[in-house]
């Protein structure tokens, strides 16, 4: 019994089948996607990255940031809100409709409910429930909207507004999704923390910006040099207890600047057909304008972030 050729052929077939099924078929189906136009304007998505940010991505790769940070938002489901936009003139009709779609409430509560607009009438319902409510609310000059609410731990932590899909990674080369969350997800870090100075401080000494962080410091991306008569414009503004000795200053290298440019470029998630998200995106309210360090932007305490859609 000499099975050499049989093994050879069988192995060839098995490997070829798996290669076809898991590599070739997806490659043929979605391996050549194009930029798409998103929204009413002419926004092309995804946008190409600037040269500096692209160099920063190299720093990100070289230092293996993706061994602790993922770049991918998960979503466990979707819910809908029915929001009253304008109550119109037929108040009585609207109140009885409100009583119908929210069975537990009294007429007084219903009256209060429609006093102020926009007001969510129903929150976190399924599509059929939302559609049924829409039918009930079909009263002339009552305006309402059905708003999509992606749900899931990642979304509620404010790491993104929707699930990540292939379109988001069109130009990523290499693609570094990461598979450990030793640190937070970075898909939208550029929107959560818009201040370059804060990012630099965080890279220089993470424990300074976030007490108890386990992120290693990246001092080697910074230079310690003798300060001139006036401090350099890009020298780090270190708090007193972390300051270096007098006459010296900490200046970020080109690599640190590029890395921060890359992090800041991670700020967009647009609504796509395959990954819809609320039309009015939730404001990434943190650190948006401030120049000082905001620990919450890095640690992402749930309370500090989104009003959880519940």
């Amino acid at each position: 019994m000499n099975h050499g050729p049989l093994i050879f052929l069988g192995i060839f077939l098995a490997l070829a089948a798996s290669w076809y099924g898991t590599v070739v078929a997806p490659l043929l189906q979605f391996g050549h996607q194009q930029q798409v136009t998103v929204g009413a304007g002419s926004t092309r998505y995804p946008a190409a990255r600037s040269g500096q940010a692209q160099r920063g991505k190299d720093v990100y790769r070289a230092n293996g940031c993706f061994y602790c940070h993922t770049s991918q938002v998960r979503q466990s489901g979707v819910k809908f809100d029915v929001v009253l936009v304008s109550a119109g003139t037929n108040k009585a009709g609207l109140i009885s409709a409100a009583l119908l779609i929210k069975p537990g409430i009294t007429a007084d509560e219903a009256r209060k409910l429609i006093e102020q607009t926009p007001k969510p009438l129903l929150q976190g319902v399924t599509r059929p429930e939302a559609d049924a409510a829409a039918k009930t609310l079909a009263i002339p000059d009552v305006k309402f909207e059905i708003i999509l609410v992606p749900v899931g731990g990642d979304v509620e932590r404010g790491w993104g507004s929707r699930v990540s899909v292939a379109q988001d990674y069109l130009y990523e080369q290499p693609l570094m999704l990461g598979n450990q969350r030793i640190g937070p997800d970075l898909t939208t870090i550029g929107a959560r923390q818009r201040s370059a100075a804060s990012h630099l401080l965080h890279l220089y000494n993470p424990q300074m910006t976030v007490k108890g962080s386990t992120m290693p410091p990246y001092r080697f991306l910074f230079e310690k040099r003798k300060a001139g008569p006036r401090p350099s414009p890009d020298a780090l503004q270190l708090p007193a207890e972390y300051a270096v000795e007098k006459g010296f200053e900490i200046v970020p290298t080109e690599k640190a600047q590029a890395l921060v440019a890359y992090l800041l470029s991670l700020d967009t998630q647009l609504a796509l057909f395959e990954a819809p998200m609320p039309t009015a995106p939730k404001q990434p309210e943190l650190g948006a304008s401030t120049n000082q360090t905001s620990a919450a932007a890095f640690t992402n305490t749930a309370a500090a972030n989104q009003p959880a859609p519940k």
Binding site: A62, N63, G64, C65, F66, Y67, C68, I182, P206, Q207, S213, T214, M215, P216, P217, Y218, R219, F220, L221
Partner: peptide, 22 residues
Amino acid sequence: IKLHGPGFLSQLSWLTYGRVYP
């Protein structure tokens, strides 16, 4: 060790976690 003591051997770029681990 770096995972619980991030300061450990952090001065050298080639000993940073993202390089030593892989």
